[in-house]
Structure formats: structure tokens, C-alpha cells
Computed example of a mutant assay.
Amino acid sequence: MRKLVDQLSQYAAYHRDRRNIATHFIGIPMIVQAVAVLLARPVLVEAGPAAVSAATLVTLATALYYLWLDVRLGAVMAVLLGLALWCAQVLAAQPTPVWLGWGLGLFVVGWLIQFVGHWWEGRKPAFVDDLVGLVIGPLFVLAELAFLLGLRRELQQQIEARVGPVRGAAVAA
């Protein structure tokens, strides 16, 4: 679990304001879906009725990375990424203006929401210093959701021991 704590702590250091984290609950899923949508149309391999797109490969690689970091969180992320991929494939099958509109629209709005959160935080996004932050962001959101639900307390405590508690929220006992 050390690698998971390292990755989430590094990302969490840029996200200690509750308002910023709240924007990530909206913005990051939008960005993940946008990337899946935009990568779903370029087909890399035709395999009969099934096709392998760039989105398929990115989803698989990302899910495997999350599973390597943590089986429980990784399994949930694999399911969520699979749903995003399914939705992306549906949108990629639409006429180009629909596909591109959804992909670019989700991407731009998602990032605008993120930047509002970082304005509140008073700190630049984590990926500016480390591009791995782009991959850890979705896992961070899932971990924060788990913490809000009272799950993975040991993980939350390890992260907070490194970067401090979230500001602007009641501290749970």
C-alpha cells in the first residue's frame, strides 16, 4: 500500500481545500469521459464485430495501473472506467459533430471547473509538477468518496499524516 499512499499523498498535497475537492468530483469525471470519447473513434485494430480503439487501450492500461496500486480501489475504478468506455463508444458511433461536441465540451467544461477549484485552493494543479497527477486524479476522487463514506480510514490517516487534514470540513472521529 506504500506506493498508493505515496501517489495519493503527492496528489493530495495540492488538494486540501474542501471546495477544490468538490470541484474535482465534477470536473475529473467529465475530463475522464471526454478523453474516452475523443479516443474512442480512432480504431487501431478491427477484430470482426469488435474494434480496439485508443480508448480501449488507455482504459485497460489505466485500470491495470490502479489495480497494481490497490486491488479494492482499482477494481472499482476498472468498473467505472469500463462504464466510461461503453458510453464513449456509444458517442463515438454518432455523427462527427455529436461525437466531437460531447468530447470537446466535456473536456473544456471539466477543466474550467478544475481551475475554479484550484483558484479557491490558491495552488496550481498537481499535474503541472508531475504528469502522473493526470492519472492519479480519478483515483484520488474515488478515495475521497470512500473517505466521505467512512471507508479506508487507515489510508486517509496515512495521507493526512503526510499532508495534513482537508480544510473547510468537519473532522470525523
Rank of each mutant, 00 (worst) to 15 (best):
K124Q: 08
G137R: 04
P125T: 09
V132W: 12
W102V: 01
L104C: 12
L69T: 14
V128T: 00
C87D: 06
G110H: 02
T96M: 11
G103D: 00
G137P: 04
V116S: 01
A75H: 14
T59H: 11
V58N: 14
S53Y: 03
F115E: 04
G122I: 05
V135T: 08
L91F: 12
S53W: 04
V128W: 12
Q89F: 02
V98M: 02
A143T: 06
C87P: 02
G137S: 14
V58A: 15
V135D: 05
T96R: 14
T59Y: 05
Q114E: 07
V108L: 09
P125S: 04
F140S: 05
L73I: 12
L81P: 00
L134C: 04
A84Q: 11
A51W: 10
T56Y: 07
V71A: 15
A54F: 08
A63I: 14
H118K: 07
W119V: 01
R72D: 00
V135H: 00
L81I: 02
V58M: 15
L100D: 01
T62E: 11
L106T: 00
W119H: 09
I113C: 09
I113T: 04
A78E: 01
A126E: 01
L67V: 15
S53D: 09
L69N: 10
L142M: 08
L83H: 00
W111R: 12
V116H: 06
A143G: 04
A75K: 15
G110Q: 00
L81N: 13
P95R: 13
A55S: 11
P95E: 12
D70F: 06
L69M: 11
I136E: 10
V98Q: 02
W86M: 08
A63W: 11
V58K: 13
T62W: 15
V141I: 11
R72P: 01
V58Y: 14
L60P: 08
L106A: 06
